[in-house]
Amino acid sequence: MYITITPQKLGDNYSQSAADFVEYLEKENLILEGENEEFFFNQYEDKISAKEVVRDIDGNTGKLKKIEPKFYSITVSPSKYELKRLQNSSEDLKRYTRELMKDYVACFNREINGKPISIDDIKYYAKIEHQRTFKGSDIQIRENQPFATKIMELQKEIRTIQSGEKEGGIKDLEKQIVKLEREAPHQQNGKRIVRGMQKEGNQSHIHIIVSRKDASNSLSLSPGSKYKSSEVMMKGKLVKRGFDRDQFFTKSEKTFDGTFGYKRNYVEIYRARKEFIKNPNFYFSALLQLPTNEKAIAFKLMRESGMPIQSIPTSSAQLALKVFNRLRRGVEVAIKSSSIGI
């Protein structure tokens, strides 16, 4: 499960309207028809129009400055193993979203009229998507890049020959390109994986737009707060503040597992991924102490996430910085995609 929480920005400035983001989330509906379309939804309603989402989010920004986020984007991306537990991706993920947002409000250290924040105190809209494309940050693109660069160089050389700027054998260059296309380490359906290519398999995930202001448009609720839990004097009153991100990510996993009966492996747990950053020796020790079948699954999951695990240590004496540095690059990519501000 990978979850990101980000304020929406355009360059150095925060988006002043949700219109562009909502339009982006409508991209799949441009190629779908009728019953296959995915509508926005919230805690109680289905089939909410894009126009209503923009109007409601943009109209709930009272007293926020241009330098402050107007809304946050939460992206929830279950793994392919988690998705296998679902009977109906759209309906199951919709049900999970509504439980997840209860976890979200429970992680605010805030009160409204002396009561903890409830699901009815926030304004959010969500949408299920079923497609993904490869991005530059994906390991497949990164590891294919040397081949892509060489192919582009050869293609450029072919164009210069065709234009008469230089002489050379085009057929030999074309053969080199075919060879490079075939040798690229990451392929899909017999073709080199390139940026923008649609990923195969079940790619269902959730996009959530949540207003920075509460439903009454009077209180600011920031999941990007640097405070987990604290109190501060404001206008002569003692006010609670903060959002516990660690608690939210942990709750999101437990809610998914409880809802769909998913048995989470050690390397899939948010707490374990964070432990890798703070205490890699403990992380590897715990990994090596897993039962044989769970350890095998853990290694498989790690390989699929892009971690080079050929030299996992076999004793505590080998839990050294050399191994840590070898693995860190791959794991950090996964960790960054599942949290804010670790």
Rank of each mutant, 00 (worst) to 15 (best):
T4S: 15
P7G: 11
Q8V: 15
L10Y: 02
N13C: 11
S17L: 08
A18Q: 05
V22H: 03
K27W: 00
N29V: 08
I31H: 09
E38C: 11
F40H: 05
F40M: 02
F41V: 05
K51D: 14
I57P: 00
P69F: 10
I74Q: 01
T75Y: 01
V76L: 12
Y81N: 15
R85Y: 06
L86S: 00
Q87K: 15
Q87I: 03
N88M: 07
S89Y: 08
S90P: 00
E91F: 02
T97Q: 11
R98Y: 06
E99D: 13
Y104C: 06
V105F: 06
C107A: 06
N109M: 06
E111P: 00
K115T: 00
P116T: 04
P116A: 09
I117R: 08
I117Q: 02
S118R: 12
S118T: 12
I128S: 07
Q131W: 01
Q131A: 13
R132F: 00
R132L: 09
Q140A: 07
R142E: 13
N144P: 03
T149K: 04
K150S: 10
I151S: 10
E153F: 01
L154A: 05
Q155C: 04
E174V: 05
K175E: 14
Q176W: 02
I177D: 07
K179H: 12
R182D: 14
E183G: 02
Q188D: 12
V194F: 00
R195W: 00
K199M: 08
I209K: 05
K213M: 15
D214W: 01
S218Y: 03
L219I: 09
S220E: 08
L221I: 11
K226S: 13
S230K: 12
M233K: 06
M233G: 03
V239L: 11
R241V: 13
D246E: 14
T255S: 15
T255W: 04
F256M: 06
F260W: 01
Y262D: 04
R271V: 06
A272H: 14
K274A: 10
E275Y: 06
N281S: 14
E294F: 08
K295P: 09
A296C: 09
A298T: 04
R303L: 13
E304G: 06
S311Y: 14
I312A: 09
S315W: 10
S315M: 09
S316C: 08
V323T: 15
R326T: 12
G330K: 05
V331L: 14
V331C: 10
A334S: 15
S339F: 00
I340G: 09
